[in-house]
Structure formats: structure tokens, C-alpha cells
């Protein structure tokens, strides 16, 4: 019943088909993989909810160039965060935060410093971050919020 290999000339006339499906599968998997990697390597934002503003006077954030100072909520141990570096809440740590900020501003040029804090944060804990920016010679600060615009 089975035809031998000797009749290879008949097989040669058969159309050559390539199965694209596994290739597409793998390509999509690669895309998803690299998207996930890109997501993780992005500047890490602390999981906090900034204040919601109705009728906001806010502007879009230039995420590529932004220097972000984050006020860590009490549940995360308090303190502040600039990039990947964490700072405590005492005077010496704030001094260090100011120095790090000045260093950073020298490196990136004249960009606004974003201050990102939770909506429930007491003002006493946000003000030192703004003051540290002022001491570091920053003139433009931006306060991060979630805009609520009418649909």
C-alpha cells in the first residue's frame, strides 16, 4: 500500500507549504515578552493614589525626562524616594535628598521636578520634599494629581 521513497519525483510536484502559525505564535510571545520587560524597567512608581482634581489646572507629564520625588506613605515606611534611592524623613536624610536632587539636576538639565504624594498624606510630610527641591536650586516643581475631566 505504502508508496516507496523511490517515487520521489511524485512528491516533488506536491506544493510546498510552510506553516506560518507556529511562527506567528512565537513572534507574538516575543512581543509580549519584550513589552513586559520594558514595563518593568520603566521608572518605578510607588503604588500610591495621588489626589483627584476636578476642574484641573494640570499639564501633561513628560515622563521621559521627569525627575520624580515620591513621598512614601506610612504603610511603606515613610520617607522619600528619588529614582531608585530611598531617603528617610529626618533632617540629615532630607539634606541628602537635596544633594542627590542637585546632582540629578546638573545631569539632566532644566527639567521640572515632580512631587508625587498620596492624597491622604499629611501636608507636613509633603512640604519637606518641596523645600528640598527649592534648596537644591529647582525653580519649577510640579505636583502630581489625577485629573477628573467631564466626559
Amino acid at each position: 500500500m505504502r508508496r516507496g521513497r523511490g517515487q520521489g519525483h511524485r512528491e516533488a510536484t506536491a506544493p510546498i507549504r510552510s506553516n506560518m502559525t507556529p511562527m506567528i505564535d512565537v513572534v507574538f510571545l516575543l512581543i509580549i515578552f519584550f513589552m513586559l520587560v520594558a514595563e518593568m524597567s520603566r521608572a518605578r512608581l510607588v503604588d500610591l493614589e495621588p489626589p483627584r482634581l476636578s476642574d484641573p489646572a494640570s499639564v501633561e507629564i513628560d515622563a521621559e525626562r521627569a525627575v520624580i520625588v515620591q513621598v512614601l506613605p506610612e504603610s511603606m515606611g515613610g520617607g522619600y524616594r528619588l529614582g531608585d534611592r530611598a531617603f528617610g524623613g529626618d533632617a540629615a536624610s532630607l539634606e541628602a535628598l537635596g544633594a542627590a536632587l542637585r546632582e540629578r539636576m546638573l545631569a539632566v538639565g532644566d527639567v521640572p521636578v515632580l512631587v508625587r504624594a498620596s492624597h491622604a498624606e499629611p501636608y507636613e510630610r509633603v512640604a519637606p520634599a518641596i523645600r528640598a527641591a527649592g534648596r537644591a536650586g529647582v525653580t519649577r516643581v510640579q505636583l502630581v494629581a489625577l485629573p477628573e475631566r467631564g466626559t
Partner: peptide, 21 residues
């Protein structure tokens, strides 16, 4: 999965400018 990853469901954050003296 691709489009779920590509979609950002959160409202994008914005910032209110504050000029320090």
C-alpha cells in the same frame, strides 16, 4: 493578551505647576 497589555486602564497622571521663589 497583547492588547490587554498595551492598554493602560488607569487615568494618566498629570501635574500642577508650582514655581518656587
Amino acid at each position: 493578551v497583547y492588547f490587554m497589555l498595551a492598554t493602560d486602564f488607569r487615568t494618566p497622571e498629570e501635574a500642577v505647576p508650582l514655581d518656587l521663589p
